[in-house]
Amino acid sequence: MIEYIKNVWLGFWTVIVGMRITLAHLFEKKVTVQYPDDRYPIPPNARNKLYLDPTLCNGCTSCERICPVNCIKVETLRVVPDDPERPMIADGSKRKLWVPVYDIDFAKCCFCGLCTTVCPTFAIKHTVEFEYSTYSRDELYVRFSDMSPEKIIEKKKMLDEFQAKEKAAKAEAARKAAEEKSKTDAKAETSPVTESKESN
């Protein structure tokens, strides 16, 4: 019986205690942030949408290789030595590769931040922008390369010509070498024409 009265009293009393707490909160300062109008501060190192500075990227493809979800696609073109534009990377070093294709699929990206840490030139960076929802997934596929199609074609042609020349020179050399029956420049190999990586 005493137990019963105690239980009833406890049931009543704890309800009163709870109601007192909620009543106190009724008049407390509210914590809601009226989102689109005023915002929660985002720290500058927040890992949100990625941004690539194409003038900085040297096309080393480290980011492509480290990405755990394979959402970066990089294609590069070799720069011919006598390119009239004298290409430079924004940090001052000489450009060895054009980057005609640099795509990031934000629908896949998991914002792990690995790509930004491996980049030798700090070309790829996270920004604080997080509001980029779109109505279609295709819009999340962002192309970052700053090369115009004409420029790409032009550079391709230059490279092709250069490579043709190189090939001819090589063939000439090989012929000469064959004539002289000496095997000297077998190792002077050039890198493949176009490095194109597919994203498995």
Binding site: H25, V31, I42, N45, C112, G113, H126
Partner: peptide, 29 residues
């Protein structure tokens, strides 16, 4: 329902610290 939101309010402060340190709110790496 109410304790749920009190906890979530506090958790939000903790996540803010994580965000400041790591840049992410939930999946930190």
């Amino acid at each position: 329902f109410t304790p749920f939101l009190y906890f979530f309010r506090d958790r939000e402060y903790i996540l803010a610290i994580f965000e400041k340190a790591s840049g992410a709110r939930l999946l930190f790496n």
